[in-house]
């Protein structure tokens, strides 16, 4: 496995994530798309850290670990907001949540 393999996988993950966010009609699927985006970034950091920096420098891997923590925090807040949306609108489909516009 070379660096290119990792980068191609992470680019595919990132694109899939953006695609999911743009096309999915369910808030949970959008959240999954966002998780894909964040994971592609973590993969990038870990791969760059392994191939591009000296072995004793692990700053890239540290960033990846912080990325995982922040993704978890974001998922928690997102799910809480989805719950609030469900209570108010009885639906978690973004196109039915549309009282604000103009």
């Amino acid at each position: 496995m070379t660096l290119q393999h990792y980068l191609v996988i992470s680019a595919i993950l990132f694109t899939l994530g953006i695609f999911a966010v743009l096309t999915r009609r369910n808030a949970i699927s959008i959240l999954m798309g966002i998780e894909l985006i964040l994971n592609s970034c973590n993969l990038n950091f870990a791969a760059f850290s392994r191939f591009m920096t000296p072995p004793e420098d692990i700053s890239g891997q540290v960033i990846a670990i912080f990325g995982i923590v922040l993704a978890a925090a974001e998922a928690a807040v997102f799910l809480a907001i989805i719950l609030a949306i469900y209570r108010e609108f009885g639906s978690i489909r973004p196109n039915e949540v549309d009282t604000l516009k103009g």
Partner: peptide, 15 residues
């Protein structure tokens, strides 16, 4: 309206 604001905010913001 407030819940909807938070929902739109986090969707754009997270991406």
């Amino acid at each position: 309206r407030s819940s909807e604001a938070a929902f739109k905010y986090i969707t754009y913001g997270a991406v």
